[in-house]
Simulated scan of single mutants.
Amino acid sequence: MQFKDIVGQDEVKNHLIQTVKDDRISHAQLFLGPEGSGSLALAMAYAQFISCINKLENDSCGECSSCRKYNKLVHPDLHFSYPFFAKHKEDTALTFIEEWRKAFLANPYLGLDEWRDHLSADNKQANINIAEAHSIISKLSLKPFESEYKVLIMWLPEYLEKSGNALLKIIEEPSQKTLFLLVAQSQDQILNTILSRTQIVKIPKLKTKEIEQYLIKEKGADTNKAAQLAYLSNGNLQTAQHLLIHQENDYHELFLSWLRSCWGNQGLKIVEYTDGELSKMGRENQKNFLRYGINLMRECMLFMANASELIHLPEKELEFISKFSQILNLAKAEAIADELEKAHFHIERNANPKILFLDVSLKLVKILKFNSLPKGTQHILL
């Protein structure tokens, strides 16, 4: 993995490269960033850059013997630790290394749900067990085989639980030229004893435009679809890729038509939508459609609260909220968003889509046409 292959994050890349040039490589670093931000990919590119035999000015060469092994995740001085679903108490990350290599090489932005799909989870809880902690200590007690550094990349140390305390001594006083790169999403869920021993590298979520350009150039998405999905993904490249696989509809046009029929109290059209378009689009698309509507209503609320500097929307969506806000107020927008969130919750739990979307449609008619608001929203009527 090279820095040039990672979407965005130029500021973080420059910082990491400079630490190597200045010989200021901290032995224990925590890459802290939300899912889909590229934090795991950055840790890999950083480790590869450090171990590269023929470093370029701002990246690893990608061609030396070290880089070739890193590209296949088989370098003898590169070790991984990650949550897994242990079938036996002696299972460690090494038990699942082939699945890990396959998953990461297919998608360096993977999340825990995607990783779970690569394993036979059997309803078990993911964790990094005490056997894995002992395995890490054993591996890192050895001298490097080829490179200057031994590197351990631990993905999601939040799953260490109390077994992580076994690693405190080796993290605080590692053998010479040992590098710990912890890749986390939630600082609050990491053991404080481990957190206090690491240098934090904060990684922001990706910009909407960066994801949009990635979907167009790397995934061949058309401009409108890329703009919609980048907006929906909220800075998460993993989510954007998932949406691209499952999206079969133009959510903007579909949502707009649905709202129009509800605003006009067009009973027959509403039934046509709920029995046809909405109920037959598939569960993943239904969830994404509702998520799109929720996000759009939130942007409407920002627009009406005169916080337009916080709105970053594609042109079609921006035109929609400026017009729709003329017939809306904060109370209605909040009530619509609330109904869509409830629908999303029930779709995830296998509710009947025909019944659900008809019920939501009738509630939207009451909100839009008859100003009938749920309790708790009337107080913000404008």
Results as ranks from 00 to 15, higher is better:
S175K: 10
D5G: 04
V201N: 02
K139C: 00
T178F: 14
Q189T: 03
G235F: 01
P144V: 08
R298F: 07
Y70K: 02
N350E: 08
L302I: 05
D59Y: 11
A343D: 05
L382P: 13
G36N: 04
H27S: 05
D10T: 05
S26P: 01
N107V: 00
D222N: 15
K217N: 15
T95K: 15
I170A: 00
K219F: 03
N352Q: 10
A331V: 14
A240F: 08
N329M: 02
K217F: 11
H134I: 09
T92Q: 10
Q228H: 08
V183I: 04
A335W: 02
V151A: 04
A343K: 01
K202V: 09
C61Y: 06
I270G: 06
A184W: 01
C67T: 13
K280A: 09
L330M: 14
S175C: 02
H118K: 12
L30H: 05
H242T: 14
H118Y: 15
L195P: 01
H246I: 07
Y70W: 13
E98A: 13
N350I: 13
G293C: 03
L313E: 05
E348W: 06
S51V: 10
K21T: 09
I190E: 00
H252F: 15
F84R: 06
I190D: 01
T274S: 02
I216V: 12
G267W: 08
S51L: 06
V271S: 04
P83E: 04
P353S: 12
D22Q: 15
A305M: 12
L16M: 13
Q29G: 11
L313N: 03
I17G: 03
N58S: 13
L73G: 11
H134A: 05
P157M: 02
F345S: 01
F370N: 10
L30R: 04
L78C: 10
H118S: 13
K102D: 15
H344M: 13
C262T: 15
K177W: 03
S257R: 13
G220E: 06
L42T: 07
Y214D: 09
E315K: 12
L244G: 02
A103V: 04
I200D: 02
R101A: 09
P174I: 08
E339M: 07
N288W: 14
F104M: 08
I128L: 01
Q199P: 05
R260N: 14
K217S: 14
